[in-house]
Design a protein around this nucleic acid. Structure first.
Lengths: 346, 346
DNA sequence: ATGAAAGCGCTAACAC
DNA sequence: GTGTTAGCGCTTTCAT
């Protein structure tokens, strides 16, 4: 910058102005500066600007370092499928990027690594004006500290920290509606629910919705899911389906899975066992992943607006950047029931 | 940082060490510093660190601000499809993020906006250690200046600037192999090629491959594509198919499109016209997008490894960051022919 | 419309 | 193992 100033015969202040507020510099001067910059290959240092101005023009996203949930599935599936898989985080990224772009921000993304030298979140936090965190990516303790310094919004997670903005989808509503559909519209009564870990807020909320539907319909209300899966993968879904089949007592008329992955695995397991879906048993998932349309039979599920999650995260961050004093916001995005063949529709 | 130092009774240098090289500080001292930081909500400033150390630990990506290529298609298609669409840029991002993570970098992404106050690329360039650019995102002139200061790799573009590393896929090879397959294995001889703009390096390279196959087979070698499409959308593909049908002279036995989008559009147009694929006419695409598997009949195409493009970009950047003096590298990634029903296979 | 000077919060030598 | 001291390359008052 000093070189550019010298070469164009102005002060560094003027060079700075040329880049920040071009109109505040006489056109002729401006041209001279720009030309000098070109000749010298000058690129303004974002770091220095950020340091001096205390703003970066960048928003961030931290997400978990999970292997693809489909990794195991791919082995047995067509390798083509790999390209069709759009990860949850990919869609969040896309949503955030779009919205960030609209507001003139760039997006910094980083997955939390197992054993990074410094926590990834700190790295991101130090380089952005605000950032979003996917549930269970970052130790609550770290978030607590960081969120005192800059806006943080929690996506799809519990309200771990009460002064954070946070966004979730209507998990309970969706599952309740889904179960209601099976009960009222298809007349099913013996329903089994396969959940996730207790610590997974999404899975728990879905189970809650299931319970509500049971209560509403006057059916027995279970205290806990019939089964719980650790990672909610296809393999676990398949195992769960078999376990349910082999369980003593009457076979369930419907199996509700806390996500699509498990439901897809179940579909395959049931086919191997010669159990027809939906004639013998209805199967449902949750998420609305692309795979859910392609499997046979196509999966009845609840679609959650993942990209909008990302978009809203950015909107919240931008709002808070403008008005940091406001009350913490808590958004719940609506979901939609998708009726396909696996429940007996279509 | 000064506050943390004061509160824990050490100098700022020690605070700095605690974050950079924890082992160089006595455990007891370290704990005191960390505790003070926690109490004060201290978050190290990435900007200041970057400024002082002249490195950011961030790699960048600039990509074009295109609307979804499928935007028009979505209107007529199932809105479900929207979620299944994985954009080219999404896959590049995913590939780069993965590779960057492995090397301990975060990823900064930004789409070039129409009328940003400052060029997006400058913004990115100032905040990263090196970055990748998707073809035709950034004015060559800007790149020329910036690439003098930090490593830049061009993805899927022409070698606009000769000292840049760049990566492309084997467009010509893929199209040649595809055309050879139609000619030799299916015995087709009257082939029509629908290309893109002259300025699209991908589309031109694919046409080149088509020509090679014609030459190899002793067929007439066209000087130019039978038709060119501006944006290579489904709508344009449909129009092109109809134009080809209505053209005077013998109807072609095969239509080769420069991308899958157009081929899918063509499939629909041909169906409307009552032309059977592949019985009456073979149709092929290029790219291997998810949609290509789902359409009826499934599309024969050439898959390009988009994610690997992103991964390789990061590898090149990391290499160059380690050894800036090396010769410019030019990588060509292999593609693979995918035979499906639209050419008469399977 | 332009210049001068004081930091922004950290790292990197070097000294102890 | 820890402290001291210069900057890193900008933005920001405040003058002019």
């Amino acid at each position: 910058m000093y070189d550019v100033a010298e070469r164009s015969g102005v002060s560094i202040a003027t060079v700075s102005r040329v880049y920040r507020t071009p109109d505040s510099v006489r056109a002729q001067t401006r041209e001279r500066v720009l030309e000098a910059a070109r000749q010298l290959g000058y690129v303004p240092s974002g770091n220095a600007r950020g340091l001096a101005s205390r703003t970066t023009g960048v928003l961030g996203l931290c997400f978990p370092d999970m292997a693809d949930p489909d990794a195991e599935a791919d082995a047995e599936a067509d390798s083509d499928a790999d390209d069709a898989v759009m990860l949850y985080s990919d869609q969040i990224i896309r949503g955030m990027e779009r919205a960030a772009r609209r507001h003139g921000y760039a997006l910094l993304i980083a997955a939390s690594m197992e054993d990074g030298p410094e926590s990834v979140v700190a790295k991101v936090a130090g380089r952005v004006d605000g950032f979003a965190v996917l549930a269970r990516t970052v130790p609550t303790e770290d978030l607590e500290v960081i969120s005192r310094r800059l806006p943080v919004v929690m996506i799809a997670g519990p309200r771990e920290i009460d002064h954070l903005d946070h966004i979730v989808v209507a998990n309970a509503d969706g599952e309740r509606e889904l179960a209601r559909h099976l009960i009222e519209d298809h007349g099913l009564r013996r329903l089994a629910f396969v959940g996730g870990e207790v610590e997974s807020p999404d899975a728990e909320a879905r189970f809650l919705g299931f319970r509500q539907a049971c209560r509403d319909a006057g059916l027995p209300v279970p205290d806990a899911p019939d089964l719980r899966a650790e990672m909610m993968t296809q393999a676990e879904g398949a195992r769960a389906a078999e376990a349910l089949l082999d369980r003593a007592g009457e076979r369930p008329e419907g199996m509700l899975f806390a996500n699509d992955q498990m439901a897809v695995g179940a579909l395959r397991a049931l086919e191997r066992r010669g159990v027809r879906v939906p004639e013998d048993i209805a199967v449902t998932g949750f998420d609305g992943i692309p795979l859910s349309r392609i499997v046979q039979p196509p999966l009845t599920t609840v679609r959650q607006p993942i990209r909008r999650l990302g978009e809203q995260a950015v909107e919240l961050l931008v709002q808070r950047l403008g008005n940091s004093g406001a009350e913490p916001v808590s958004l719940m995005l609506p979901v939609s029931l998708i009726r396909r063949a696996s429940c007996g529709c279509g």
